[in-house]
Design a protein around this nucleic acid. Structure first.
Lengths: 187, 187
DNA sequence: CAGTCCTTATCTATCAAGTGGTAGGTTAGA
DNA sequence: TCTAACCTACCACTTGATAGATAAGGACTG
């Protein structure tokens, strides 16, 4: 019971502290972007001091890179297999998860918009997110890379528009139009 | 010669100083967003002290609101008449102007992504930008509001993707697909 | 025309708060 | 005892914003 992983809810739970830091930082970064939150904001949300954040992630760039990589991996995993039926619909649903909830903008959409001002490693992670998204969509569309780019662009833009207008309907209508356009123009 | 407006390049040119402040601030905001630049950054770019910026725009929100309103008005003016031939192409070209040049992201695309963390008045200006864009596109498409939303979303997203990947081709291909999708799916 | 007054635009100097980051000490578990 | 995790306490710097001085120019007034 006291070996292996400690399941008691004691004061310290070092194992998942790192994950909780990433959780808090992700929440903040999805609201205000790279420059819209501070180490102290993260620390306060987790319930520790800012020096502890530096212990796990020496610099802000380290933190945001880790954040973005985790976000990307989880997002891609949630998409499943692009060759299984209903792939385009699943993609649209995944993007939709960043609509409707306040302060939960798509992390990579926000960081991509700030791209010019980001540290290089961070920009790289964001680029990988969209590379992987386009690749996934292209496979789902039978290798039509150009239509995949247009679809990802459209979904990403629709998230921003719908959030900015506080109207999820914009996303749903735009996604429907994009999906019908994608399927009608080809195949 | 010394009456009316003074055309000499003397030390003080108060008339256009305000515009020059907006020019500098726009450049900075299009790079790093609302939280990515400071009054001192703007002041240094213009060649004055930060207190002088506060004289023209008391708060940062005032500055960014003025910035966004000017950007929106200019953008809409550049689109011309949505009922004239080639309107969709003109729209795509207007969005394209924010692709390829470094540090010149579409201001409203960036601010919309940061929307959750912006002061309310600023968010309002950004919302108006997209309202007007969708309205313009809907008129260009013969009243098809849903397709207009999808088109604007697609173009806005394509700008972000192309910039983030430093590949203008992404924008061009996505724009072409969006325009063909828009015209093929209907009419 | 001279004198003064007001407005505009700018400056210097400063503020309290917040920034990313560091040094070094403390504590608890393996 | 060693190490990871966390702390207190700080650092130099930046942030948005303010107060008050200065200077220039236009506009009334005598």
């Amino acid at each position: 019971m006291t070996s292996m992983t400690d399941e008691r809810e004691v004061i310290r739970r070092p194992a998942d502290r790192r994950e909780r830091i990433l959780d808090a930082a992700e929440k903040l970064a999805r609201r205000g972007g790279y420059f819209g939150f501070s180490f102290r904001d993260v620390a306060a949300a987790v319930g520790v001091k800012s020096a502890s954040i530096h212990h796990h992630f020496p610099t802000k760039e380290d933190l945001v890179v880790a954040l973005t990589a985790r976000y990307r991996d989880r997002f891609l995993e949630s998409l499943g297999d692009p060759l299984q039926p209903g792939a385009a619909r699943r993609l649209a649903d995944a993007y939709r998860s960043a609509v409707g909830t306040r302060d939960q903008m798509c992390l990579c959409g926000l960081l991509a918009a700030e791209s010019d001002a980001l540290p290089e490693a961070t920009r790289g992670e964001v680029g990988t997110f969209y590379d992987a998204n386009i690749d996934w969509a292209a496979r789902a569309l039978g290798g039509e890379t150009e239509r995949a780019e247009a679809l990802i662009a459209g979904l990403a833009g629709a998230v921003v528009l719908a959030r900015s207008k506080l109207d999820p309907g914009i996303y749903d209508r735009a996604a429907a139009a994009l999906l019908s356009g994608v399927s009608s123009g080809h195949r």
